[in-house]
Design a binder for these strands. Structure first.
Lengths: 81, 81
DNA sequence: CTGTAGACTGCAGTCGACA
DNA sequence: TTGTCGACTGCAGTCTACA
């Protein structure tokens, strides 16, 4: 059977970390560009906090991608495996 | 010049209302399927509250669409005008 | 059918410091 | 470079009730 679908907040954290590294950013650089705190980026990536839509848009802008791209990557983490 | 980009939480509310009506749901039916409160759906659609990623995923499931589709519609409200 | 209102609980998000 | 910890503020999200 196919694996259980992953909690969206866990999946988002994994997707964010993957995209951040692809972009060659540290958590600190990403936080700076997204205007949020570095410690909060850490919590999100670890799936210990879930972002609101405003934060999702800020992170996408900082990563120079569309918010929908971030969500598409999250869906992959959620459902592909 | 192009119009100011709309606040994501306002844009999300507009997109949600549009998709909900397209699906032929009332706020109450949507809330029931998404397992959130009807009054909260109202607040989101009016842009008075912004959802977390968990709520975005629940709403998309209830609307039988992908979370990324919901965000794509939000981007349209944000940037196309 | 939808908006609103008040009061409430838990967590999103901040801040500073240290391993 | 990232995780963690404690303490904090504001808001996400609930509940009930009424226009």
């Amino acid at each position: 059977m196919l694996g259980e679908s992953l909690d969206p907040k866990i999946a988002f954290g994994k997707a964010l970390r993957r995209l951040r590294k692809q972009a060659g950013f540290t958590q600190e650089q990403l936080a700076l560009e997204a205007d949020i705190r570095r410690t909060y980026v850490s919590l999100i990536e670890l799936g210990q906090n879930q972002p609101t839509i405003t934060v999702i848009f800020r992170l996408a802008k900082a990563l120079r991608c569309l918010p929908s791209d971030l969500i598409i990557e999250t869906e992959k983490e959620c459902w592909l495996q």
